[in-house]
Design a protein around this nucleic acid. Sequence first.
DNA 1: TGACATGTCAAACGTTTGTTTGAATCATTT
DNA 2: AAATGATTCAAACAAACGTTTGACATGTCA
Lengths: 221, 221
Amino acid sequence: MRIKSAAEPAAGHHAATRTQLLEAGGEVFAEVGFRDATVREICRRAQANVAAVNYHFGDKEGLYTEVLRYAHVKAFEAHPLLPGVEPGTPPEKKLRAFVHSFLRRVFDKGSSSWHGKLMSREMIEPTAAMDALVEERIRPMSIVLWQIVAEILARPVNDEQVRQCAFSVVSQCVFYHHCRPVVTRLNPKHLPLDAAGIERLAEHITSFSLAAMKHLPAVKG
Amino acid sequence: MRIKSAAEPAAGHHAATRTQLLEAGGEVFAEVGFRDATVREICRRAQANVAAVNYHFGDKEGLYTEVLRYAHVKAFEAHPLLPGVEPGTPPEKKLRAFVHSFLRRVFDKGSSSWHGKLMSREMIEPTAAMDALVEERIRPMSIVLWQIVAEILARPVNDEQVRQCAFSVVSQCVFYHHCRPVVTRLNPKHLPLDAAGIERLAEHITSFSLAAMKHLPAVKG
DNA sequence: TGACATGTCAAACGTTTGTTTGAATCATTT
DNA sequence: AAATGATTCAAACAAACGTTTGACATGTCA
């Protein structure tokens, strides 16, 4: 049995079925969750044998861990943290870029549209892969946002109010995706979001948050 | 086999084990989700026989549906929509009450602390119980919020901006709970939230949202 | 070509799970 | 007290699942 880590470059037929398993796994895990996903269905979609998962990833959980890494890498490749932002850009513009890119990443309809769903599930039921994910991907993203907010508020990066406002910004970005079932039922025309809808939403979140931060009552510190 | 609906009043020993199953079911479903929850574990905690679930609720899914209703009823009994708000209260004060009550409901540490987790899971994987839940509980709650926001913005209740701002408010309320795994790892001191922490968070969300709504750039309409 | 490691395959295994069953117990009514 | 219906119980059932196995195919290097 050969179990390759994600870092190790693969070659030959190995790589082909391995990638197909990652893609199929991402699909199925996103659709029905880890527990309801069956190895048989994943292998069927990957056009591989039932034993392929165990051969390539040790077990079902090993596949899931690698799927999570794979998903995040692909999502940030498709939608970078701050696309097209030069140093020296005013923080308001950076915030808009951050929000817009975040939304696109979450609502991506492309080949790996399952990234968003996968992350949502991981929030509800964090696995061992969560720790690595936070340190490798989410914390760097947070720091960028903290810096933007700190600049807007004219406060230090580690300020409590900066942290709270950053959370307020992100919360609005993830809400439509996390609570899709409720939003859809309450206001059907709000979802699903096309490119124009995403842009409109990004505009609202940005101006809502900017208005808030610029007129927040002063606090000590 | 006797399957009673939630509405039907129960009496005798029937009611006792029935309630114990609902409580145990709420616990277990919240902890590990519908699929990973085993009927055996639920019955063990309810000190009932393995067959009790099938006898009282038909099947596992029947139990889950009733658990959802039970959870929502209890949560709103413990934390009403707008506690202690007289008609004529200024909308700012109503908003604060709404947010605070919402947070207490979500972060309740009491006997049915599983309500929040249960709802989060339902967001990711909506079941048939979702439709009823939205119409019976969530829509009435939304309408109350829409009215408050409309008053603050001085716009009609069905205005697009009112809807968007209401979503922005709610999104902040659910964020800390939905994304607990990430928040905890990013900023450990933010969670878990005690009563004082909840109050502080309610204060931030309210003032952030009020500042935003009062200084939002004007839009057409 | 022969030898060896790598990858694939169909079949089977062992476990876990929701559910069923039929007898036993309890409560209520006649 | 007898009878009837409701409820509980231990045991067993049947299906689905992740995993293992050993045979077979494929590619590579001597």
